[in-house]
Amino acid sequence: MSGVRTLPPLAAYALALGDDALILAQRLGEWVAHAPQIEEDLALANIALDLLGQARTLLSYAGEIEQAGRDEDDLAYLRDDRDFRNVQLVEIPNGDFAVTIARQLVFSAYQYELYTALLGSGDATLAGLAGKAVKEVAYHRDHAVQWVLRLGDGTDLSHARMQAGLDQVWPYTEELFDPASQLPGIAADPATLRPAWEQCVTSVLSEATLDKPEPRWRSRGGRDGLHTEHLGHLLSEMQHLHRTHPGATW
């Protein structure tokens, strides 16, 4: 099974974006039947479905470009953690609702800028996906913003938890803007996404009476296949059944 390093750059790029969406969809799927209100079960499931749809498109596309006969399921279920290219942000455990919402805020805001930039991509598949996805993630971002405001400026308890949630996810945000593979005119340069992201997130935090965290460390390595200890467990659960029946159709 070919590793990350042998993938054509465009396939590697699509895979990275696809892995982000796939792993986060997996995490959100864990919330089903546990959300704070039944209406939230619906909202989170909705977001998970959107992300899963993005993942499937991106993974399939990566497989097509690679031309090694791997389809979306081969890529999702048969790679080991060292071959996953998602940022570490999406693989950390859900924590409480505040941690999940904090992650949703920073990640959806990032995806919004990402897909907006990809609308102008020279690659038709990426541009086409972006056209659909940008509307989806605009909604995801809005959902996160509504909750950050309510938790940040709700009760003392919710404020404390929301701040703690932000403190926990913030160290993982730098990775979102690290330089990516050079695909001028096709990929979005992550550094260019930062200013708009920063502006959006900062203004929400301010309105929500929350402090922007100043972490003493930052995550590294996700795009190169170096992950947290959490990804292994997540993949065990996700992949186990598929791997137990090699070659089976589902």
Binding site: Q26, G29, R56, D73, Y77, E237, L241, W250
Partner: peptide, 10 residues
């Protein structure tokens, strides 16, 4: 979380 294909998961 354990659905055996992405389509089935969706």
């Amino acid at each position: 979380t354990r659905a055996p294909s992405l389509r089935r998961k969706a």
